[in-house]
Structures are given as C-alpha cells and as structure tokens.
Design a protein around this nucleic acid. Structure first.
Lengths: 132, 132
DNA sequence: CTATCTGCAAACGTTTTGCATCTGT
DNA sequence: ACAGATGCAAAACGTTTGCAGATAG
C-alpha cells in the first residue's frame, strides 16, 4: 500500500488487487490472465479497469508491454532491461538476465538513434520435449 | 512462375500477385498492406485469400510472421535469420544482417533446447528526429 | 468536493470461419 | 474430376471507448 504511494494514482481496491497480482509475477500474464485472477476477489471487475490500470502503470513505467505473443499483449512487471526465452510449443516464457552488449556499426543503423534492444530466444522447454 | 512450382500450391492469379508483391519486399507489410496492393489488380480480392495464402506460405517456410507491431501481424518474405531495427515513433522497420553469435550458458536456459534468436533494436529514425 | 476510476455495453480493428462456387492441375 | 482455392459475409477475438454512477484523496 505504502509502496504504491509514489505512483500518484488513485489506489482503488481493484488496482491494489492488480498490483498485488503483478508484484513479483514472472508469468508474463495477458490482460485476460489478470482479469481472471482479480475477478475472484472482485466479481464485478471489468476488462476496462484492467486495461485502464495497465495503461496507467505503463505510463508510470511500472509495467512493460510485451510483443512476444502474436495473438495478445502480455505484461511484465519487471521493467529492468532483460530478455526472454520462449518455448515455441507451449509459449511459456522465461526471463534472461544478461547484458549482451549489442552494438550496431554506423553502416547498419540507417541513421537511427539507438535507444535499446531486446533479444528473444526460441526453443523447446523440457516439458514439451518429453514424449516427443 | 517457374520458381514457385516447388511450393506445391495451386498457383492462382491471386496467389501469384501476392507472391510478386512480396518478392524482395523489405517493407514488412501487414495483411492489409498486401490486400490493398493486390486489390488494384484483382478488385474481388478478399482478406480470406490473403490470410489463406500467408498461412500456406508460412507453412512452406516462405514467409515469416513478425510480432514487431503490437497491433497487427506483419510479414517478411525474407526468411533468412536476421534482426530488426524499429522506429519507436513511426514503426518503420529496417533489416539488420549481422550474426551476434548469442549464446546462453546452461544456467540460463532452464533446460530449454535452443533453436534460434531474434534481436530487436529500438530507436528513432532520421525522419522522425527532424522537427522535434 | 471533484478529479479520477469503475463497470457495463457497445464499437473497433484484425483475424478466422462457413460455405457455395470456381479453378488449377 | 476433384482437391483445394476464392470471395463473401458473419463471427470471433483482443482491445478500446462512451458514459453514468461511484469513490479516493
């Protein structure tokens, strides 16, 4: 509760539930995952509130929108620069904390001013390899 | 025409138009971009045909689906391993051909069998920096 | 007290589907 | 001839929006 004070957002019960759900969550949940989780506590919870809160948290830099899944957005409460390893079979996502120190020489940047980068590794997780 | 024989797909005029549009195309078009382009030649063209053809080409490994844009899928006829540099302002995408030789030590792979990786660089293109 | 948030329902943009008809091989 | 493609319209899906009523600060 205290630790969310600096968000300068109205801390409604629904928002606190979303914040609690996201805190330390490494499952990279979709809006629906969040909705379903919070719905159990607040049966009137709506998608509007989930998206509204995610938008606010994005703007405050407290959540990152991931483009890892082609079908829906996923959200990551860990906004430190990090990378992802994705199972091509079950779409499970694992965080990778490593600085690859990637650079691009002038002739590759096409005049862009670089701001950052993100690496996705693809593979098959242990569970999905069993039985194949 | 000849060069598409090995796709083992029915080469309908609509498909050939899509293939021609994609050939050497580095604009990473969305389904709508493709639809609009082919529509001029075939006024009865439908999205169903665009998506159907893209699905077939994906399965044949002749086109790659990109998750670069959170709002819609984009397609890339260049299926060689390469990376992308994306303008955060105008969403323009530039190809990066460079092998970064990224590796993950055992303790980071969580038991995954690695298959590949893809790097996205973010930045602002020259055009979008002008006037800011 | 009031700026902001909630929750519903309707709208939106993209992608998928069912199906009758057509066509490449 | 017929497996497979087209094209239309409808539906599905994730996400966004408008708005009336509620509430945190």
């Amino acid at each position: 509760m205290e630790k969310y004070r600096d968000l300068h957002l109205k801390l409604t019960p629904q928002r606190l539930a979303i914040l609690r759900y996201l805190e330390g969550n490494t499952s990279h949940p979709s809006a629906e995952d969040i909705y379903k989780a919070v719905l159990q506590q607040y049966p009137t919870m709506s998608f509007a509130t989930v998206y509204n809160t995610l938008e606010a948290l994005k703007n405050k830099g407290r959540v990152q929108e991931l483009k890892i899944d082609p079908n829906k957005k996923r959200y990551d409460p860990d906004t430190r620069q990090h990378h992802h390893l994705i199972c091509v079979t079950c779409r499970n996502i694992v965080d990778i904390y490593k600085d690859f120190e990637l650079t691009l020489s002038e002739d590759l940047t096409s005049g862009f001013e670089l701001l950052g980068n993100s690496v996705e590794f693809y593979g098959t997780c242990q569970k999905c390899r069993v039985g194949n």
